[in-house]
Design a protein around this nucleic acid. Sequence first.
DNA 1: TATTATTAATGAATATTATTCATAGGTATG
DNA 2: CATACCTATGAATAATATTCATTAATAATA
Lengths: 304, 304
Amino acid sequence: MLELRHLRTLTALHETGSVSRAAKRVHLTQSALSHQIKALQVHYGLPIIQRRGQSIELTEAGKRLVSLSGKVLEEIQTAERDLARISQQTSGSLRIALECHTCFDWLMPIMDAFRQHWPEVELDLVSGFHSDPIKLLEEGGADVVIGSERERRRGIVHHPLFRFEILAVLAPEHALRGKRILQAADFTDVTLITYPVPEERIDLIRKVLKPAGIHPQRRTAELTIAILQLVASQRGIAALPSWGIKSYVDHDYVVARRIGASGLWSDLYASTLKETASRPYLRDFLITARNACFATLEGIVPLA
Amino acid sequence: MLELRHLRTLTALHETGSVSRAAKRVHLTQSALSHQIKALQVHYGLPIIQRRGQSIELTEAGKRLVSLSGKVLEEIQTAERDLARISQQTSGSLRIALECHTCFDWLMPIMDAFRQHWPEVELDLVSGFHSDPIKLLEEGGADVVIGSERERRRGIVHHPLFRFEILAVLAPEHALRGKRILQAADFTDVTLITYPVPEERIDLIRKVLKPAGIHPQRRTAELTIAILQLVASQRGIAALPSWGIKSYVDHDYVVARRIGASGLWSDLYASTLKETASRPYLRDFLITARNACFATLEGIVPLA
DNA sequence: TATTATTAATGAATATTATTCATAGGTATG
DNA sequence: CATACCTATGAATAATATTCATTAATAATA
């Protein structure tokens, strides 16, 4: 018999186009999903997915179920928001401090949706840079910090968002374009174009260049698009999340290269005080954020 | 985590107003439902139901979930109809033969809904009386017979619908009104008002009066309301399903009395040929019919 | 008012079912 | 042609839902 678990699987399947990726998304094994799919197909006497070589494709029946799933899961979320409202603790503030510049891109639409769902909650972005953002939480200057730290600290909870890859971005005519993978040494004589944040905040420098003793020149820009313009016009190399540059790469405005053999990856967490973590609107924010990210950002991977 | 099973339980709970009755409806034990409810309440940190003496009441949270359930289950049914259409076998005929006169009352709205959901299926009522309605199926004169027989016959499947009680209906001033329960002997000198069908088709006669050797006078009428008019004007007693007369009893137009200590009950089945039974639109018809009946008719009980 | 019949809640035992593990076979890629 | 992916599958295991047995509470009945 059909259960919500199946619907959740279906959407994951639809969004990832692969059983194993979908499995990661719903925190199960590939085998579990395979069995689920099998059961559904037997139950309805219809194929739900179809192997397309390496990946899979949803059949007509599968797509119909995905559309069902979309509606149903959304209705459930709305209902659960109402339940949260019934149980009170529904008003409060959600001031978000962003450690990661590019996160603006995906955060905006989520914030818009959130404002609609939780009109009673005061939603804000905390601007400016903060050397110790976690301290902000403790001092009450913010309610959530979105960043990549996961330092264990009592009273603080780090909610995993996702893992993403940071790629080097070069002009299509750049001398290094021939290399499939860039190593630390390749950055010796280049100018690095970054957001205007301290060095410790830039993963490429902290995790790759500094350990290798390399200190390239830096030039900063506020906006992602500005950074890409500088890159395209040969002023230097940038290191940006794969999902932030996809459309530019697809249009050959710039090219992207992996950094190091297994790539440079970064994990994103939403950190809150323990007490904030239990607030229903915060939980809803996290669920929505994760869903939206997995639905829109390509190439990201779920975290434990 | 919320699953469809919980939603199905919730609606049953809502429609029956009792955990044990709801349990029967979804073919589980009372204990199972009690555990489900507990789990939900823990999960949402909210009470879902509230004891009101003997029976229960849904809390605000519970009602919200019921409304969710309604929407969701309906969407699922629509989706499953679409799946059936995808898998073909979607057209055909559904000619219904009615053994039970009163069934018109609940069947009509169901047929209307069915026509909308399955425009390709030819839907009809087979009129007239048939001494052996099952024969109709075998001869291809009908696709479903709704009646109370459950004679085992190869190639025929009997799908249980529900069990209902047949009550004696009297005028409020009738001499027998003082008795809580009527026995066979009470019918000795009364006129029985029935639909114009053979005696073998009238449960009261077949199961109660004939075994007791009592043969009361009969007078017939085509419509339920006509029968009730005759009863109200003291022309005799009728025996009708409890759900068919409820509103008349509530308005004191007539009074209803149980027949025999444990009541006179009748089971309703929808019988089809084995091959017809597997058609998706037939399955959908059965599910819809059962749901609609349990939602509208009071005092009916699920069958195995 | 005592008695009986119902009804719901609960903990422990059981049955069922989902999930994982281990593995095999298929398909791209270099 | 080897390697790295992917999916499918049967058996073993883990998880969980359900039942069983019992208690407490409430309503109906004598």
